[in-house]
Write a protein that binds this DNA or RNA. Structure first.
Lengths: 226, 226
DNA sequence: TAATACTTTGAACGAACGTTCGAACTTTTA
DNA sequence: TAAAAGTTCGAACGTTCGTTCAAAGTATTA
C-alpha cells in the first residue's frame, strides 16, 4: 500500500464511501495509534522541540518506520490538528441542532469546548499552542477550520445580542471567551480543579453576565476625577 | 570584562549600588539591544525554532560574538522573560499604591496588564508562549514571579469579594481573566483592534459584571427539563 | 607609547536534526 | 505454495544545531 493520500485519512470526510479494505482499515488504525503517541510527545516537548526520534520511541517503532505512515513531521502535526479540530466542530454542530434558545446555545458552545478540551487535553494543547507551526497549505487548512469555528461563535453571540437587545463588540467578546477557555491548558490540574461541566457553568456565568447585564454608566468619569 | 554574573543584569534589582563603570554601562546597553532583537526572532519563530545563527543575524553580530554577552540560548530567554515580567509587576505595584477602591484596583490591574502587553507585544508573547521552555533554576525563577503576580491578582479579587459580599472561586476567576488577557497575543491586530484603554475597559466590564452580579438561580434545572 | 582590559571573530567541534532507501520481513492474494 | 502487496528496519545522507576557543581587533589605562 502506497503512503496514504490526503483523502479519507482518519475517516474525517463526511460524504460517501467509507469502504476500506481490511488492510486500509489496519493502516488507519495504526496511524491513529501513532497520532496518539505523537500527541503525547508534542504535548510534552512542543512541535519544534520534539524530534522524529522521540516520536519513534514513543510509538515503539523505528524512525524510518514512521515514514511509512506519513511523509513528514509537519504532516503529522497537521493530521493531529485536523482531526482534533474537525471533531470538536462536528460535535458542536450536533449539539447545536437540538437547541434554539440563544443563551442555551452559547452555554452548550462553552460546554462542548471545555468537555472536549478536558477529555483531550493533550491534543487540544497541541492545537492551541502550535497554532503557527504549520506553514502554507497545511496551515491554511487548519486556519480555515478555525475561522469556521470562530464564525459559529460570532453567530451565536449575534443571536444572543438580538434576542436581548444588547450592544457590544462580538469580536472582542468571542476572543475573550476563547481566551478564557483555551488558556485552561496552561493551568488545569485534574486533581485540583473541577470537571468540565462545573467549569463550563462558572465560565458561562462570568461570560454571560459579563456581556448580558446593562453596562454601568458614567462611573468612570467620576472616579477619574478623584 | 568577564561575562556578567546573574546580578544586576538589566539593572532589575531594586537594592543599592547602581554604580556601573562606563564599560559596564556599555555592556548592559549592548546586551539590552541584543535582547530586543532576540525578542523579535523568538516572537517570529518561537524559542525552539529560533537558532543562535538567526539571533546573530538579527543582532548584526557574529555567532560567537553573542556568547560574550550571555552564556547560552536558555539564559537569553531567561533574561528576556525576567526583565519583561519584573517590569510589569513593578509598574503594577506603583499603580496599585495609589488606589484603594477594590473595583478600581482590579480595573487598574487589567489596564496595566493590557497596556504593557500591547506596548511590548513581542516580549509578552515570548513570555506567555514560551512558558515551559526554561528548565530547572531559570524556569523556577520565572515561575516564582508568575506565582507572585498571580497572588497579587487573587488578593485583589478577594478584597473585591469581601467588599461586595460575593461568593465565587477566586482561582477560576483569576485564571479566566488571565486567559482573556493573555490570549490577546494570538489575535490582536493594531490596524483592526482598539487600544489598550478601550480593550481594558471592555474586558473589565465583562469580567467585573461577570463576577459581580448575583448569580442567576434555579434556571438551569428548569431548562434541563425541557 | 606600551601595556592592559575589553570586544569581536572565523573556524571548528560533536551531536542531533528530518529524511531517504534498499533490503528484509510479514501478510494477503492467486 | 508461489507471487504480490504491504510493512518494518538499520544505516546512512547532508544539514543544522548550540557551543567553544585561540587569535585578532579595539578601547582604556598607566
Amino acid at each position: 500500500m502506497a503512503v496514504s493520500s490526503t483523502q479519507n485519512t482518519l475517516a474525517s470526510n463526511r460524504q460517501a464511501a467509507p469502504v476500506l479494505s481490511r488492510t486500509q482499515q489496519r493502516f488507519e488504525r495504526r496511524l491513529a495509534k501513532i497520532l496518539v503517541h505523537a500527541t503525547d510527545v508534542f504535548y510534552d516537548k512542543g512541535y519544534e522541540g520534539a524530534s522524529m526520534r522521540d516520536l519513534a520511541r514513543a510509538s515503539g517503532m523505528s524512525l524510518s518506520g514512521l515514514y511509512y505512515y506519513f511523509e513528514s513531521k509537519e504532516k503529522l502535526l497537521y493530521l493531529i490538528q485536523k482531526h482534533t479540530f474537525s471533531t470538536i466542530v462536528e460535535r458542536l454542530r450536533e449539539r447545536l441542532e437540538q437547541l434554539s434558545d440563544p443563551e442555551q446555545r452559547i452555554r452548550i458552545f462553552i460546554l462542548n469546548h471545555l468537555e472536549y478540551f478536558l477529555a483531550n487535553r493533550k491534543a487540544m494543547k497541541v492545537l492551541s499552542h502550535e497554532d503557527e507551526a504549520l506553514k502554507n497549505c497545511f496551515g491554511a487548512e487548519i486556519a480555515a477550520i478555525k475561522r469556521e469555528y470562530y464564525r459559529i461563535c460570532v453567530g451565536l453571540l449575534d443571536d444572543f445580542k438580538r434576542a436581548r437587545k444588547l450592544e457590544f463588540s462580538s469580536r472582542l467578546a468571542v476572543l475573550s471567551l476563547f481566551g478564557m477557555m483555551n488558556w485552561i491548558y496552561t493551568w488545569y490540574k485534574p486533581r485540583v480543579d473541577s470537571g468540565a461541566e462545573e467549569i463550563a457553568r462558572e465560565m458561562g456565568d462570568i461570560f454571560l453576565k459579563g456581556i448580558g447585564a446593562p453596562r454601568a454608566k458614567a462611573r468612570k468619569k467620576k472616579l477619574a476625577v478623584n
